[in-house]
Write a protein that binds this DNA or RNA. Sequence first.
DNA 1: CGAGCCTATGTTATCGATGCCATGCGTAAC
DNA 2: GTTACGCATGGCATCGATAACATAGGCTCG
Lengths: 338, 338
Amino acid sequence: MTEAVARSVRQPSMADVARTAGVSAQTVSRALRDSPNVNPETRRRVLDAVDQLGYRLNNAARVLSSGRSFTIGLVLLQSGGYYSRSAVTAGVEAAAGHAGYAVNIATIAGLDTGLMERALSKLADQGVDGIIIAVPLISVTQKMEDITRDIPTVTLDGSRTAGARVLGIDQLEAGRLATQHLLDLGHRQVWHVSGPDEWIEARQRLQGWRECLAAAGIEAPPALEGDWSPDSGYRQGQIIAMIPDVTAVFAASDEMAFGIIRALRERGRSVPEDVSIVSVDDIALAAYCSPPLTTVRQDFYRSGQAAVELLLDPDGANASVVPASLSVRSSTAAPRSH
Amino acid sequence: MTEAVARSVRQPSMADVARTAGVSAQTVSRALRDSPNVNPETRRRVLDAVDQLGYRLNNAARVLSSGRSFTIGLVLLQSGGYYSRSAVTAGVEAAAGHAGYAVNIATIAGLDTGLMERALSKLADQGVDGIIIAVPLISVTQKMEDITRDIPTVTLDGSRTAGARVLGIDQLEAGRLATQHLLDLGHRQVWHVSGPDEWIEARQRLQGWRECLAAAGIEAPPALEGDWSPDSGYRQGQIIAMIPDVTAVFAASDEMAFGIIRALRERGRSVPEDVSIVSVDDIALAAYCSPPLTTVRQDFYRSGQAAVELLLDPDGANASVVPASLSVRSSTAAPRSH
DNA sequence: CGAGCCTATGTTATCGATGCCATGCGTAAC
DNA sequence: GTTACGCATGGCATCGATAACATAGGCTCG
């Protein structure tokens, strides 16, 4: 006797639900989207049918017919800043999910306009309703403008295209807070290990540092440049260790700060006794490595959330700023008196 | 004179391209998907028309008519392990993008079957072609089984449902490597601060530790349990610091290890002179904090890639393992001789 | 008590790409 | 010189939900 071949069963559609509930497909659609004009009794019947059939709304069909995808795209940089990337993602995902949106990720391998264009294209192809760019745009191309003109975009701490809104942590302020803290402790000079120049954050922190020193009438020493990684901090730290009079360093990220500290210690300079170090980020480990870092706290998770809110708010402001605050721990101290 | 109102222009469709290129829509579709039976000259005309119109394939329509979404879902846990989460995501995204797939993220706030079900439902609703679960499934519910039966699933280091393939770093081996390293240095006893018991990784590392000690004829001391965070490491470290004879500790994660080290130092126990510490992960900072950590390296990025490969390989194995290896640095040393 | 309106529901067209089948032409095979 | 087959292409139905419009009762108000 021939058995019916077990074939992959077709997923139930709205029409199936409608049939089971004894209503039209349109009514099912309305009931599922809590449209106001649906009889509670009818809605219940529909929901029962949904349960019974194990119905699942077909997203593609909804997107096609409604023109909205309920998905937002997130552009991230692959390398560097594991902590911040991860925290931003979590914040974005949480806020998006809360608003009924899914998140689609596009990672780019480096700061390159070509890669950036491809990432944006990919998201545009996916039909995202909005885009959050969490990497700095070094330069904005026509293609990027085209895409961000058609799709609402929020730039997190980056430069902007004509169409994009900008959300930023106040990096100028972060640089000032860090530098001022060192000056307040009595240091007469503050060195700086910056992030890569392509990054807006890096430039702004650098500028905050310069301005703060200028305001105190101090001429800024040359800035050293790292790439956010602990390893680059280590390399710049080796250089700093060769300069005799350094008593205070402002590092543009916690990870670099740890590298700097390691290099200084290996050369017999202790932190904070000989050299004070302050940085920016306040990653989870900042309080637990040795010494616990004095650092300017950035709330990445909150930034991610705020970016989504800014994106989805139809008449929101065009720019918004998340404040930064100083966490004082043990990597800074008054300079040793001679 | 009345100006035409600037209205949101309809995106060009395949039919528009077809008209411009002087062919049928079907041929456009074939040309764009490099179907073999298309005249090169025709293809060129089509591509020119695409360029000229700025045509962009409508993903929703493609998904609806083809039944495939070219999207894979990634389930992540929101808290803890920033580094690993981020690296896994990058690996998944890279491998997926390489194969022409987009990645859709679902973050869950905690290890809870309800949240897990909702995350899977959300991904299923989005019509993903496959799912990668990067959090341990504490217990598998019917609903979870249903979803993972319908959609190919790979579990990264987690327990498994009937339908899922499993990819894991060999955590048993990681636990053994770490413990054996301490025994080889001459330690007579090794304490352990584990991860939360719900995590398979945590259980396996713990088991590796127990087995290794057993093989050496040593009775394992009670394990202390943390939650992967530096803070939990710090708390367990305070307890360890009160026990006089401890000379070696195996921490289940780098972040906890840093917390433990901090607690020990605050109580006057130096690392590695008084107490040796080895952990698991090898995060970027492991080499740069003080002391540089001896740790079992896990290649999260590679794991993410491997998960995608396993997912997309139609006749791949049902399980696969990424090896772990020991990075020896300065947090471990031979015990002080009495 | 009839005009007008609000509520609950049904009907039909539509979104844009693809699967399947049909077609016409050139060429190799018998 | 048919038959048969491969290649390049077109036509049409279809995927599943939704927007826009249509309709049938019931209620309010002058």
